[in-house]
Every structure is written in structure tokens, then in C-alpha cells.
Design a protein around this nucleic acid. Sequence first.
DNA 1: CTCAGGCGTTGCATCTTCTGCAACGACCAT
DNA 2: ATGGTCGTTGCAGAAGATGCAACGCCTGAG
Lengths: 254, 254
Amino acid sequence: MSQTVDRALSILPLLAEGPADLGQVADRLGVHKSTALRLLRTLHEHGLVYRQSDQRYRLGARLFALAQEAMENLDIREIAHPHLVRLNEQCGHTVHLAVYEEQEVLYIDKVESRYPVRMYSRIGKPVAITVAAVAKLLLADLPEPERRALAEQLDYPLYTARSTPHAEAFLKELATVREQGWATDLGGHEESINCVAAPVRGADGRVVAAMSVSAPNVVVTAEELLSLLPLVRRTADAISGEYSGRTPVKGTLA
Amino acid sequence: MSQTVDRALSILPLLAEGPADLGQVADRLGVHKSTALRLLRTLHEHGLVYRQSDQRYRLGARLFALAQEAMENLDIREIAHPHLVRLNEQCGHTVHLAVYEEQEVLYIDKVESRYPVRMYSRIGKPVAITVAAVAKLLLADLPEPERRALAEQLDYPLYTARSTPHAEAFLKELATVREQGWATDLGGHEESINCVAAPVRGADGRVVAAMSVSAPNVVVTAEELLSLLPLVRRTADAISGEYSGRTPVKGTLA
DNA sequence: CTCAGGCGTTGCATCTTCTGCAACGACCAT
DNA sequence: ATGGTCGTTGCAGAAGATGCAACGCCTGAG
């Protein structure tokens, strides 16, 4: 809607691929060097872009700070965190909290496994949307037309032999998940890693977040992990209760 | 340098404080509502702001993804990480890696303590620059005029009784740190937490990053922590060697 | 049930502001 | 030395952003 801003913002993902010099930025934006320079300068003043010693530009520090603050403003996250920690203390595995936003599912909190073998993931990173257990829960709750539209525009990368192969299979899986109120990912993303997930619901019953417990085969079998389902659901429900204001938060004065 | 972009970017820190509606944004920018609307729309298209269900705006998901990618592009981080993990395995405490950028010091990596009592910190968060051990190392290496200028424009919050009180004391401390090649923070930020830090240097000898080990008093005394100094320095030197290309990376084909 | 007030949204005419050009200076390598 | 590349600046023209006023929607009060 605003050309100048649009161009300036297009620089960010471009630099996310790696550092670039003025000429490269100008070329990829399709504008004159002087224009690119002015845009970069403005971004620089706001700390979003950093000029490294070789004069090339890369993403700047304020970006971290902003992402950080954005994260801390999510109230679900704040409410859920102690529950995640408690769950981790009880089962020892990696616990994740994820939300859906703008056609993406992303982790907003994580408590690391206490076992030495850990799975790789990072807060803020978009989730493998077609296979992750938390993604299934979040997408299963979307209004039908939106769910279908999204499912059809997604890619279905075959991470493993058990990855969701195409939209049709995905929609079927989402229907099941919607029905049963919980989800799993059994080696669909990484061959040896399994997850069980449960939804966090707001006062109106809509799914606002999803949490999961993940563990590699070498630590517990899929069956053992599934036996944790009641515990995971109880935790998710506790978060739901607190988030929707039903459960008074303990420790708060009455 | 570019008014429109400048205004648009000013919205981000504003929203970092918390969600805001169109009117509030327009007011704080000092522009007409319609202008604010167009800017917000552009930000929205790029995923930097999100419109929540109550129509208010808040920071969006792509911000996380960008910060994430920016982080993964830092080569020091990549090189250092395995060393940090190894150090953590050896001593069990929280290990941090930090860099200086644009008058700020920020953590770019962290390995959590294996003790139950952990210190609070987050990757991406700016560090308490006047007291943190890593900050001292990074600032001590700045060219003298820059160091002095920065020291004088900083605030010196008294987190504890042992916090650095003013610029003069800070510069003196920096001189010491520069001299000895390592730094500490003994309860200057949080009463009960101590840190030991060592610098990572590039091929030209300049400090490119700093790493630290932190632990609360309740786990180890300051003296015990200080006894880890040789280990910390050895780790930092190993990173330096690899970063500056002196040490061949093991596991790489010759 | 009505009506006022607040909020987000749109089309438009005006004018601010951004753009591309060309020229300059710095730096590197030949 | 010198040709080339790259970042930087001033300027005139043109494109695009701005503020205004009006509309529709919702909410809450009378």
C-alpha cells in the first residue's frame, strides 16, 4: 500500500539470506542505488540493519530485541510457562507451546528435555506445518473453508516415509484430530522423534495454542510416550482454564 | 532519511510495548489516522504486525523468523556453539556468548545450567551493559575515544550495591579488564549471581565476542567460580583459533 | 428503539517527498 | 598511473504520500 515502505521492508528478508552490499540490494529491489542507500540508511537508524566492517549490510540487533519484546507480550505464553515447566519436571521430555498466525505455526515457548538426547527446534522458528502435532491441532480448529484453502496451498515435503503426503491426507488427519481433541506426530518430521499434543482453548472454546511433548525413540517408545497423553491433556486444560479466566490463578490475592 | 519509512518503522517499538489500536498509533506518530492505517497495512503485508481478533495491532510472526535467520547467519555463533556446549558439560553452569553492536551488548547464544537454580536471561536481549562481565570485555576493546564517549552517555542503574556507579568507575574497570584479558561480574547485576568471562578474538586480535560462565551463590561461591577461569579462557581461545582460521576445524576434510 | 459517539475505512485534490540521474571522490587492482 | 567499481551527494521532475471530509459499522446510552 505504501511503495516506499514496501521497498524498505523487502530488504529485510533479502538480508536474512545473508549479508549484501548496496549494489546487490539495489538490484534485487529493482531501484537505483541512491534509493536503496536511503532506504538502508533509514533501516539503519532504526537499528534493523547493521553495517559490518566490510561495509556490507546485514540484519541488525534491534530485530532481536523487538522479537523478544513481542514474545513477552503474548499472554498465553506467560500463563502457560509455569505449566510447561511443571510438565517437564514430571516427564522429563521436551515441551513446546505453539500458536497459529498468518498461515504459519510457530513455537513460542519451549522447555528443554532433561535427557541428553535433545531434539532440535528454536523458539520463533516456523513449525513443519504439515506434520507437527501442534500444527494439526491449530489447523484443525480453523473454519472449514480457511482450513481447506490453506491445506491446498501448502507444500507437503516428505521429511520421512511417514510425513503427510498431500492435502487430501492432511485434511483427513485434521478431521480425526478435530474429532478426538488431541494429536500426534509419529516420526513424520524426523524419523526417530515422536510427539503427543493437546490444545489450549479460550473461553469461547476456540483453540488459541497447542502444546506438545516430544521425545526420540531412543529414550522412550511411541507407546510409552502416548501413555503420557492424559497428563498432557490435563496440563493443557489447566492452561485453558487459567487463560479463559475460569480457574483463579493460585498465589493471587482474592 | 526517508520520512515514510521512518514513520512506519517507528510503529514497531511502539507496538513492542503492547498492542495498540489505529487511533493510538496515529496519535503517537503524530499523523492522520488514514496515514497510520496505510503504514500499518504495509507492515501487515510483510508480516511484521499482526491484527488480533479485537482489531488491535501487535508485532507479527515474521519478526521472529527474521530475528531467527539473522542469528543463524552469525558465523561466530555457529563456530562457538559446540564449544559452549562442551564447556557446559564440563562445569554444569550457564554459558553465554555475547557480541557488541551499535552501542549495545547482546547475548547471541546460551547453554542452560544443569543445576535447578538458573539465572534469567534470553538470547537477543540487550545485556546490562555497565555491569555484565561480557560487556566489560567487549567495551574494553573499543578504540579509546569511542569507549569514553559511550561510557559517558550510558546510564548507570544501581541494580545492587556492587553495580558500577558512574562513568569514571566504569572506565577504570575497563582499563583493568583490558589489561588482564578477562572480566568478572560479582553480584553487580543480581545480588547472588557471579560471572567469569573471557574474550573471543579475530585474526587481527580484536575482540569479536565474549563468553561467560554464570552461577548463583547458592550453587558455587565466587572463589569456586573464579577457579574456572583457566577453563573459560581455554574455551574462548579455542573459539578464537577456529574463528580466525588458525585452528583447522576437526571433522573437516583436508 | 433511536440516536449519538467512536472507530476504521475510502476517494480525492494537493503538495510534500521520494526517485533517478549524473557527477564526484575513494579505493582497489591492473 | 589509470581504468574500474562502489558508495555518496545535489538537484529537478514526477510519483506517491498526506490530510481532509464523508461514509458505514458497531456499541452503549437515553
